[in-house]
Write a protein that binds this DNA or RNA. Structure first.
Lengths: 341, 341
DNA sequence: GCAAGTTATGACAGCGCTGTCAATATGGTT
DNA sequence: AACCATATTGACAGCGCTGTCATAACTTGC
């Protein structure tokens, strides 16, 4: 069946039909619609009118296959339950959209095998670039990244041996910063409460940094409580309750794996009638709005997730324009002294 | 330049190269890699080995163009700042991934023009289906949806004249339910605090429903405060502070546009020394974890966003398999009595 | 041992678009 | 008037893959 037959039942119009309607060749129509380099003004108009009349929507699959670069960017994140990655995605999307690019999304669920599989899958769409918040150092994944032949940005951390580019900050340094701050405030007996750390290796890096920071002054954690499951306010609340039931004397300060967890801790203190920070000091990580809106604003470390996403997209786009942006971009974290520690 | 030249500098291997390496024709290689209908066992093995050796990654642009349906689904959401839409996206992605599909994402920022533009853009990738949380009744957008010739699911609401399918619940009914509940608890003087409602028309529908529910018993809102900007905990806190400064006598109960806002209200009460619900009752909407973890659990209405996303994806997939799933799917909301109202 | 069926493979064309290069038209020069 | 630079257009091939139909190889039944 002739695909250009005038009455092929309601298939989407093709460029060739637009060209025919405008009385020009296909390639001229193509040029006209792509913003007329070397196309006469009135030809351009004719083609645009024809396209509009036919309700033409270009087929970018064909365009990309024939011509050049896709305007899709593959994005792999470990989770969307945590607002942190939604923020990154938001920043990414907003920068990409400016240039008419779109993210194709995959969620790894902190699972290395799934991450690798997603990567392969998304690569098959021949995206123009790749952004991921790595969930592992998986060798197969690294190999795929190295061989990707496209700009690749690893976000959230600044791993010096990233396959290509990296945007974020050192979680280890963030953990250390919090240790230094709490020590400066005079706390000595400190505990840590975290969510499932086997999977979230950035949270683990913060814990390690925190330990390092303490060790520099000869201190060690008096208690480390790791709970199963993803981080959440209820989990943090439960965590502090359990920790306080078991640990005597009570720690002076508790560092949580993130703000969600820490806010849960604050709620437990409110319920248990513990005064912050006199009875116990609490600190989180991320600088979420909720922590700052608490009656006792949360002491935490603010990270700029949206900016990380934005910059990641920008790096991809710059690379595609032929520039050579820096391999490692630091997006600084900032210690936010609150009223809880 | 011959694209199959053995030494074309590091282009990705093509199917034809795999076929050559395996000593079979292109089409046989194609069939073998797609799960061997009518391919001999050992041919299949040969091809798979060749593909593996060459590190072959199929080009789905070409595959989709030549053959059939894309495995991409276009997704348009109004925002990612609100965890609600991240939840929907999470549910969507998880169901899509099961069948090897991936979302291509666009964020409309509650802007009808942007939504329309995104729609056109995403359609140019010839996705297999389309999921959107509409931000407007925009005529041009509706026309595009009607003409999309692919499964379309509108999520979050159950608009009876959806272009194709819809999954969600009636926000109006949810608002009414909360009015009935609060009336049942004995409250009469009620106020509403909302975020920028010009854009978030689902929040507006809840407000309308709330008003309806009150009106059924001859009540009216004693105060309606609409704040600029997206919903957030700090904004809700500010809102309640402002409302209480201006409104005398104090309302008995306040309905917030959502949980984030309501939690902010709870924080204000904690700070201002107002007892919940004796001095003032507060209610939210969404049933977020944080509300339930508060020392005084928030009275709210739980919606199942992740399930909405999941079901939306499932509807698309079923339609692609030739089934005829229902046009409207209700995902019920549930009133969660807490300690704040 | 041969027709009829089944299984396995391949040749061919084409999906809708764009890069390349050639062809034509236009206008200004000397 | 012959010539050249520039502006505008088109023919052609091909991106990498899959659907269709034809062909070849192999069974099976009588």
């Amino acid at each position: 069946m002739d695909p250009n037959a005038p009455d092929t039942p309601s298939r989407r119009p093709t460029l060739s039909q637009v060209a025919k309607a405008a009385g020009v060749s296909e390639i001229t129509a193509s040029r006209a619609l792509r913003g007329g380099s070397a196309v006469a003004k009135d030809t351009q108009l004719k083609v645009e009118r024809a396209a509009h009349a036919l309700n033409y929507v270009p087929n970018r699959l064909a365009g990309t296959l024939a011509g050049g670069a896709s305007r899709q960017v593959a994005v792999i994140l470990p989770s969307l339950s945590n607002i942190v990655f939604a923020d990154v995605l938001k920043g990414l999307e907003s920068r990409l959209e400016d240039d008419g690019y779109h993210p194709i999304l995959g969620i790894s669920h902190y699972d290395a095998a799934r991450e690798e599989h997603l990567l392969r899958d998304l690569l098959s769409w021949r995206p123009a670039g790749l952004v991921l918040a790595p969930t592992s150092g998986n060798a197969a994944t690294r190999a795929l990244l190295q061989a990707a032949e496209m700009p690749v940005v690893e976000v959230m951390d600044t791993d010096p041996d990233a396959a290509d580019m990296a945007v974020g900050f050192s979680h280890r340094a963030a953990g250390r910063a919090m240790a230094h701050y709490l020590i400066g405030r005079g706390y000595r007996r400190m505990a840590y409460i975290g969510h499932d750390i086997a999977t979230d290796f950035r949270a683990l890096a913060r814990l390690d940094g925190f330990r390092d920071g303490l060790a520099e002054l000869g201190l060690t954690l008096c208690e480390t409580l790791i709970l199963d499951g993803p981080s959440s306010v209820p989990l943090g609340r439960e965590g502090l309750a359990r920790l306080l039931a078991h640990t005597h004397p009570r720690p002076e300060a508790v560092f949580f794996s993130n703000d969600d967890m820490a806010v849960g801790g604050v709620f437990h203190c409110q319920t248990a009638g513990l005064a912050l920070p006199q009875d116990i000091a609490l600190a989180g990580f991320n600088g979420l709005g909720i922590g700052q809106a608490l009656p006792t604003p949360l002491t935490t470390i603010a990270s700029n997730r949206e900016r990380i996403g934005f910059v990641a997209a920008d790096l991809i786009l710059r690379r595609l324009k032929g520039e050579s942006p820096p391999r490692i971009t630091q997006i600084d974290f900032r210690l936010v002294p609150g009223a809880t520690a």
